[in-house]
Nucleic acid binder design. Structure first.
Lengths: 336, 336
DNA sequence: TTGTACGCGTTATCAT
DNA sequence: ATGATAACGCGTACAA
């Protein structure tokens, strides 16, 4: 491996000069600078980020923890974050926590040892003692999509209540009066928001939501399928369903078709997220769109501002709330 | 930040002893070891991977370059790799190259500076001069899914020719004789393999493939859609299509439905990859399955064996070829 | 404008 | 079993 010292020896210069030249310091003669850079190029010099990081106390890496890159919601988020990071010379280290606190903790520790310059969390919202210590330490941190309860941290998210409101208004506007909400876990903040907005919209149309039609479940296809299979057998009066996310909605579609429902003829379904697969032929799900890629970008921007910003900015926590949008496709229609 | 020196001072020990204790060296008294570890815990000590990496000449990170995490083929691959890496105490740094050589090069450089202990490439197959230098340097490297042409490197992949063969046999076995192959770029090795195997299977059924029915395109939905929209208008005799991957297949489905074809009644379609969305209700694509997650795991395993293995193993390049499998769903049926 | 010397936190090689 | 010290490669305060 060729180091700064090697270049210095070759050129009969001190290695501080070489170091300065390679960092384009203004304190070094233009000509020597050129010579040094050329020689560095020729010798195939490559800075050692480990050594540099050790003295500068930073790694040039930012960490990101998500539940599962295999879940279609997260690739876009991660991609947005990576692009923004790369644009400012940082690498992005993405870790999967599987919605598991122990694993999340393990990742945070491992990642901290790597001296990542900051951390983006799109992970869990459950209590994580270790994470709270990290927050107290004033480690640069940005939460995305899900806000950690009860602490003052930077955040990039979406107005979930408005998202739910859009869904409710759409369904009610089509004349649906017997509607269900099929969720993931109701402990999750963003689900609570969607639910609240949904009910609010219904109320505006004079519909009182039947609370027994709020079905708790998980955030995946299988859960949506199972819950609605049961639901539709018991309640044949339902004409519209709002799913907590698109994965759940896809499960609902499957269940409904299996029971012989035509969509949207007999049953309207609206999802949430607008993930990649929702626009596919044969699915074409009506849903609430959120800018996943942009959220990733903004999270990195916020984080880097916090890291590199003036000192008085560092303690300033920021929040960015994006506005979701209704996307009408083919799984919703007028009520019979 | 609390360092080894802090602990040493507090305990009136030399920091070599502390370092040894924290690494559970057998050269240190059991009792002092316990004391040291407890004190480290109490003070909230956390090793500095930068410093350790500098002296050990390794970072505990392995790099992975993929085209785009947003493309449904790659999340599973990345996830498999991350799990395997984590299991052995490594972090995985994933970078997106967008099928762009300049970007790929930039990533490789940035990643190398970070002193990643090895590199997994699932990226491009085009000539990349810089990458060739890296290969020459004997940097630990594993190629996944796509093999870089003409060099002796470790590789984890799938028997693409057999995959194509399975597709051909399935279609021909259902009685289809007028079939098309709708591809991504034909320069790509794995596509060539699929094509070759496909034709071979047809030949076994006495079908001579009409070469004008091999349509080149890109690896995405839009391309599949456009190509087949044109194709089906010109050639109404086609009853089966083999798509270079599932994304293309989805585009084909859309085009066919738009033209009023019933699937599989009028037209059978078979894809390749079995990505997440292929099993969804409304799609249910017949396809060739490859173990993406497992490929990621194996790539990491190979790489770490190469890195940590005995010296005589280091130069030994290995190749693992997985066997694909036919998954029959609802887009293929008997020919009319 | 350039050079000298120190420190970043850790491990490894000598001693003791 | 423990300690002193040198190294890893780099940036920078200070001196020249």
């Amino acid at each position: 491996m060729v180091t700064i010292k090697d270049i210095a020896r070759k050129l009969n210069l001190s290695y501080s000069t070489v170091s300065r030249a390679l960092n384009s310091s203004s304190l070094v003669n233009d000509k020597t600078m050129r010579v040094i850079k050329e020689e560095a190029e020729r010798m195939g010099y490559m800075p050692n980020a480990l050594a540099r990081g050790l003295v500068l106390q930073k790694s040039g890496i930012i960490g990101m923890i998500i539940p599962d890159i295999t879940n279609p919601f997260f690739p876009a988020l991660a991609r947005g974050a990576e692009d923004a990071a790369l644009a400012r010379g940082y690498n992005l280290l993405v870790c999967n926590s599987d919605w598991n606190i122990a694993l999340e903790t393990r990742h945070v520790k491992l990642i901290e040892e790597k001296k990542v310059d900051g951390l983006i969390l799109a992970s869990i919202n459950l209590q994580n003692e270790y994470l709270e210590k990290v927050i107290e330490r004033e480690y640069p941190l940005v939460f995305v999509s899900r806000l950690y309860p009860g602490v003052n941290v930077s955040f990039v998210g979406v107005d979930t209540e408005y998202g739910g409101y859009l869904a409710g208004r759409h369904l009610a506007g089509l004349g649906h009066r017997k509607v269900a909400f099929v969720g993931g876990s109701f402990n999750v903040r963003s689900v609570q928001g969607r639910y609240k907005g949904f009910i609010k919209a219904l109320a505006e149309y004079g519909i009182e939501f039947d609370k027994s039609l709020a079905i708790e479940g998980e955030f995946n296809i299988e859960s949506g399928y199972q819950k609605v299979l049961t639901l539709l057998k018991e309640r044949t009066d339902i004409t519209g369903i709002f799913a907590a996310n698109d994965l759940v909605a896809v499960g609902i579609i499957r269940a409904a078709r299996e029971l012989g429902y035509s969509i949207p003829g007999d049953l309207s379904i609206i999802g949430y997220d607008d993930i990649f697969l929702s626009s596919l032929p044969g699915i074409e799900l009506t849903t609430i769109f959120q800018e996943k890629r942009r959220m990733g970008e903004l999270a990195v921007k916020l984080l880097l501002d916090e890291i590199n910003g003036k000192k008085h900015l560092k303690k300033k926590k920021k929040r960015i709330i994006l506005t979701p949008r209704l996307i009408v496709r083919k799984t919703t229609g007028p009520s019979k």
